[in-house]
Computed example of a mutant assay.
Amino acid sequence: MTNAGAWDARDRDTEGRARSARPRDGLGRPLPYGTEGVPRQPEGVVRAPAETVAEAQALLDAGKPFHAHEVFEDAWKSGPEAERTLWRGLAQLAVGLTHAARGNAVGGARLLRRGAQALAEWETGEGEDRPYGIDLAGLARWARELADRVESGDLPVDAADEAPRLRS
C-alpha cells in the first residue's frame, strides 16, 4: 500500500480531520475494531463551568480520567482566555492520572506536576483560591503526592481509588 493509500484509509471526521473511530477502554487505550469499548466523550461541547466540574468529577469517580480530560479540554478550548490555564491544568491532572493508571511513571508524574504548577499559577495569578468551588490547593497537593508515589514505583494506580475531589 502506498502512503497515499494508508492516508486515505485513516478514520476521518466530517471535515476531513483524522479521528480514530477505534473503541477505547476506560483509560482511553485503543481497543481492536469491533470490540465494545467505553462510550467516548463528544468533542467540542460547550458547558457551563459547574457542568464541566460535575461531569469531570463523575468520570474521575468512575475511574475514567482520560474521559474527564476530554471534558476539561473542551472547557479550555471554548472558555474565556483568562481561564485557559485553569482548565488546561485540570486536564493535565486527569491525563497524569491516566498515565499513572496505565503504568507510565514518567508521563504520569510529569503531567501531574505540570498540572499542579498550572493550578498554582492560576491561584496566585488570578487571586482566586476556589474558582467554581474547585479546591486548587488541595488538587495541587494531591497531584504532587501522587507524582512522588508514582516516581517511587507505586504503579499502576487504580484510577477510581485515586480519583481526586475537585471540590472539597
Results as ranks from 00 to 15, higher is better:
3 N>V: 14
5 G>R: 11
5 G>T: 14
5 G>Y: 01
6 A>K: 15
7 W>A: 09
8 D>P: 01
9 A>E: 13
9 A>S: 14
9 A>P: 11
13 D>N: 12
13 D>E: 06
18 A>K: 14
21 A>N: 12
24 R>L: 10
25 D>F: 10
26 G>W: 08
26 G>D: 13
27 L>I: 02
29 R>M: 10
29 R>P: 14
30 P>R: 06
31 L>R: 05
33 Y>P: 15
35 T>S: 13
35 T>W: 07
36 E>M: 10
36 E>T: 15
36 E>H: 12
37 G>T: 08
39 P>N: 01
39 P>W: 00
40 R>H: 04
40 R>D: 02
41 Q>T: 15
42 P>C: 02
48 A>E: 15
50 A>S: 13
54 A>F: 06
57 Q>G: 01
61 D>N: 13
61 D>R: 14
61 D>K: 04
64 K>L: 11
65 P>R: 04
72 F>D: 03
73 E>M: 10
76 W>I: 06
80 P>H: 13
81 E>Y: 10
81 E>R: 14
82 A>F: 08
83 E>V: 11
89 G>K: 03
90 L>G: 00
91 A>N: 02
92 Q>S: 04
93 L>H: 00
95 V>H: 00
99 H>P: 06
101 A>W: 05
103 G>K: 08
106 V>G: 00
107 G>A: 09
110 R>L: 01
115 G>A: 03
117 Q>Y: 04
118 A>T: 07
118 A>Y: 09
119 L>V: 02
120 A>S: 12
121 E>H: 11
121 E>D: 15
121 E>R: 14
122 W>C: 05
123 E>L: 13
124 T>N: 05
125 G>H: 09
129 D>I: 08
129 D>L: 10
132 Y>I: 04
133 G>W: 10
135 D>G: 10
135 D>E: 14
142 W>P: 06
143 A>E: 07
145 E>T: 12
146 L>G: 02
149 R>D: 07
150 V>E: 00
150 V>P: 00
152 S>F: 01
156 P>F: 01
156 P>K: 00
157 V>K: 03
160 A>D: 05
166 L>P: 08
168 S>G: 15
